[in-house]
Amino acid sequence: MEFIGTLKGTLLAGAIVVASATTALAEFPERNIEVIHPWGPGNAMAMSQVVAKAMGEELGTDMPVISLPGAAGTKAQTTAMGKPADGYTIFDGYVAPLVLQPILGNADWNFKDFKPLSAAVANAFAIAGQVDEARWSNFEEMMAYCKENRGELRYSSGSRNNLPHMVIAKALQSYDCVAQNVPYTQDGNVFKDLSSKVLDFAFVNVGNFRSNPDKVKILLVLSELESSKKAFHGAPTIGELGVDLGLSNLGPMGWTWWIVNPDTPDDVTETLRGAMERAMARQDVIDAVEAIGFVPLSWDHTMYEEIVGGVDAQLNSMGNALAWEEKELKKLQ
């Protein structure tokens, strides 16, 4: 008898579970929504947690952010898009896995293969040199020095073949400057080694620069946005250079556009889009994004093809800069 009682209880509990599963189909969202983030723990992840928290509040659910770094974000994107197309998995679609890696032949997708929710944030980079630099006083002089001393300078773009690397390589190619990139896994260490004069120049992000503005000298802001110029204390931008790098708008910047699996039902996608747009319009979210050194973006899904397509075209047309750098470095060996 005791056993049958237990069995009944277990079955009842099972019935509740299954019942709740069926109601889940009726109203979205019925449970937590996961946001897959392509980088390791750090500022960018904390940023995504801010957006996810606000969006979760709009939807009345929790949205945990899961960090899944690896292979320039392609591991996370493959994993996220391999999950069921039910709207319970969102991908934090950074430019590296979404656009850049397919261009480099490391991923077999196209940005058009996914359903966009809304643009989230962008972050600008700059090229910085050492303070008290005696060899040059601005970016163009550094390029001239570099051209004269091929292979002499050491720089870092953080990871190899990432967006800052591509943009820097394009800039170097435009000036026929060959320098050795030194890959780092943590941006903070790039900044540290630049400020302690181990590196000649490097990419820096707004966050690291704001913490120690007097430790490095900003030579060139890799963005045309006025807000980015301001964030880097009014340093010259790529728009003010003598050469045209063919980059404008979001082209030279890091950014993320949240996306879902293309097979996600339309009503679910619309619910998510509405919630994300409301979240991105919230003042507390804008404040937090700006506090962390990022730029909040307000484009909705209708602008996806135009904006991301523009970046795709720009990066595509400059894709040979990395190959050029590799070839020139090999010549020097």
């Binding site: 500022n43 801010v50 540290k192 966050g207 962390i292």
Partner: peptide, 29 residues
Amino acid sequence: PTLSLGIPGDASSAMLLGALLILGFIPGP
């Protein structure tokens, strides 16, 4: 290094740094 340079010492302090920024404070001198 997290508080005085704004450079996180490890992954946990990288998250603390992110939190500090969100709360409106820029670590560093």
